[in-house]
Write a protein that binds this DNA or RNA. Sequence first.
RNA 1: GCCCCCAUCGUCUAGAGGCCUAGGACACGAGCUUUUCAAGCUUGGAACACGAGUUCGAAUCUCGUUGGGGGCACCA
Length: 485
Amino acid sequence: MEPNKPVRVRFAPSPTGFLHVGGLRTALYNYLFAKHHDGVFVLRIEDTDQSRKVEGAVENLIATLDWAGIHYDEGPHKEANHGPYVQSRRLEIYHNHARQLIERGHAYNCFCTPERLEQVRQKQIAMKLAPAYDRHCRDLPTKEVRDRLNGGERHVVRMKVPVSGETSFNDFIRGRVTIAHKILDDQVILKSDGFPTYHLAVVVDDHLMEISHVIRGEEWLSSTPKHVLLYQYFDWVVPNYAHLPLLLNPDKTKLSKRQGDVAVEEYRSKGYLSEALVNFVAFLGWNPGDEREIFSMQELVKEFTLERVGKAGAVFNAPKLDWLNAQYLRRKPNSEIARVLKEELKKSPFGRKEYDDEYLAKVVEAMRERVSFVKDFLEKSPYFFSAPKEYDPAVVKKRWNSGAGIRMMKLSDEFAKLQDPGKEDYEAVLERTADTLKAGRGDLIHPLRLAVSGMGAGPGLYDILSILGKDETIRRINTAIERLK
RNA sequence: GCCCCCAUCGUCUAGAGGCCUAGGACACGAGCUUUUCAAGCUUGGAACACGAGUUCGAAUCUCGUUGGGGGCACCA
């Protein structure tokens, strides 16, 4: 790396829908690298394929990156000296550069129809050859080209790849990569609709935007020599490359839909914390070299280096993400979790009731070691939000034995005598009652938990009671006695 | 088919020739704790793809094999 050159990197997604978790990691690594080196992180929108454009995708992308804590320094809505940052608004620039290439003899107009191209391809495949453009238009007479252009004939511009020799480049992660020119074909750089292809646009923009390091997915590795060639044709300095290993499905193919969720928005709406997702994704292909696992964005910035990025693809496996989410959730104060829980409740069947913050904070305190997600509060302890409608049959069978009803009645009576009881008061009463009845504590505790929650598992019983309050506790006991007769 | 890349427990990974009887984390099993469930702690099983070299010594270097992935569009 040239030490005196400022670090400028970019994340350049195409706005075709949602942000892919692979994209999130690419964006994250770029961001971390930029911030680690006090550099600039650019967001550039690669919308040169009109047919794949999706309405609102750019705004969604920005919002999602923002949620993840990845903030760009330059990009759409943050115009600086290198804009515009949306490729569809840079068409003029690409045309000029394509023309320049033609003038220098490094590119040419091609009038081949898609039909002819398809025929050629079929023939090549039939002959077991690698499909490649046959360079039919590469050496057309100048006059013919001019006439056909003047006649308005549909055409594209292709780059001229040398027929022999090879191109190699240095990759931060892979080392030196070399590809022979004979296996490269004359790539289209300007489409007949006037839009550039990725190959032209990426080179022109990265150069004009003074990108120092191109950090992108490994799927680009094979076409990088074409880009290097383009840099040479323009007489530009080739940027530093770092091709990131791919994120994989459980079956080790490139991470895709249909094998689980790939959209960051999906994880967000499922209740994953952005810190957890970011931490998790950062560790897919990178690690700090020691045994620390929990990293905030700041710590990641401090520690991240490309040297510590691995080469092999990484399977995106959810269980560890869930664990991380629980770790982050547990680090949050009760009040903050309660706030999210309140929102979650509004959207739930329990939403008709209003819950006050103090109550929710108590619920959070009781349940926080037992949940991984905020939504778990509703699933694992619905009884804090409404009286049990049914009682877990397995628990009834195990815990609600013959004398249970009588014992609960006694307990209910004893509770009724209490004045504004706290957790210890319930405990004292229960123990005293157990002694009076000559019963084991468990003979009261388990049926009582069932009566009050409908379940066999949960926080400490006395915590539950004191959160529900005396009146509600008694009401539930009495209901259970009736229903479980 | 051709080209490029990759290869340590099921998964994420540490390991840059002796520190490796291969470490950590998730997941899984057992135990402790406990009114339940968790959490926590302790603990168990679990990997250097294979074969040749190089070297006194190889998970680490070289070559080959096998396996996997990516790319080969007027998509990015």
